[in-house]
Computed example of a mutant assay.
Amino acid sequence: MKYRNLFFDLDDTLWAFSVNARDTFEEMYHKYGLDAFFDSFAHFYSLYQRRNTELWVEYGNAQITKEELNRQRFLYPLEAVGAGDSALAKAYSDDFFAVIPTKSRLMPHAKEVLEYLSSRYNLFILSNGFRELQYRKMCSGGIDCYFKKVILSDDIGLLKPASQLFHFALSATQSELRESLMIGDSWDADIVGADGVGMHQAFYNVSGRTEFPFKPTYLLEDLKELTQIL
C-alpha cells in the first residue's frame, strides 16, 4: 500500500500528555496547598483520574458540555474529601490550562520520526483535544512545523471514533481514503474509528494491550518502527 497522507493523534502519540499532565497537576497541587485536604498527591490524582475518565465518556456521548466536563473534573477531587470549594477548583483549573500547553515532553523518538516522514508524506493531526490547547502544545514541543493541517473534534463537535470526524478530516485535507493511514495510541478512538471508515491504522501500543477485537493494519511498540514500515 502506497500512502500519501498520514493522520496522527496528538496526545500520548506524539506529545507526552500523561507525563506532562501529571507534572502540571503536581505543580498545581503544591501551589494551592492541596495537601491540606489529601493524604498525598497520589491520593488526589487517583480521585481526579477516575472521575475524569467517566466525564470524558459522558462528553463523548454528548451528555455534558466541554464547560461542564472541565468544571466537574477539577471540582470532584475536592468534593470527594469534603472540601468542595468551587472557587479553589476554578483557580487551579485556570492555572492548569495556562501551564500545561507550555510543557514540551514528547513521546520517545517523536521528533526524529516526524523529521523522517515530513519530506515523504502529507502529515496531519487528527485529535479529540481542545482547540485552545492543542496548537500551543504542538508549538511547545517543537512539532507544529511538520503538519500541513490540524483537524480537531472541536471543528464539528464530535469526538473520534465518530465516522463523521474521519470523513471531515479526509475532506478538509483533500485526502483519498485508500491513500491515508491513521496513527494513534487509543484503540477505541483512533483504531476503531479509522477501521470504521475503511482507513488503514497503525496502533501505537503504549498501554501494552495484549488482546485485540481485530487485527490493526500495523502494531507499533515504538514510533521509530514507522520509519521501517513507511
Rank of each mutant, 00 (worst) to 15 (best):
A162T: 01
E79A: 07
S18L: 08
S140M: 09
F147I: 05
T13G: 00
Q174P: 03
E176F: 10
P216Q: 12
C145H: 14
Q134N: 09
A169L: 09
A172P: 02
L10I: 04
E132A: 13
V150C: 14
T227D: 06
V113P: 00
S104I: 01
I125A: 02
S46E: 15
P101N: 11
D94L: 10
A62C: 04
G193V: 10
A89W: 06
S46P: 02
E132N: 13
L165W: 05
H30Q: 13
S119H: 13
L78Y: 12
F212M: 06
E211H: 14
M182A: 00
A172S: 13
P161M: 10
F214Q: 12
L126S: 05
L177K: 15
Y121W: 07
V81D: 01
L230I: 12
V150Y: 14
G60H: 06
N205Q: 09
A80W: 03
K148S: 15
S140P: 10
S171P: 04
Q72N: 13
T65G: 12
G157H: 11
E176M: 12
F96Y: 15
F203S: 01
G60D: 11
Y121A: 02
Y218C: 05
L14V: 07
K111R: 15
I125L: 10
V192M: 08
N5V: 00
A110R: 02
S207P: 04
R71D: 09
I156L: 10
T65F: 12
I100D: 01
I229R: 06
G157K: 11
T65A: 11
A202G: 08
N61R: 13
H30T: 11
L69A: 05
L106K: 06
N122T: 04
D39Y: 08
K66F: 05
V197M: 09
F38Y: 15
S171I: 04
N20F: 08
Y3I: 01
G141C: 08
I100V: 13
P77V: 02
K149G: 01
A83Y: 00
M28Q: 14
D23I: 08
E58N: 10
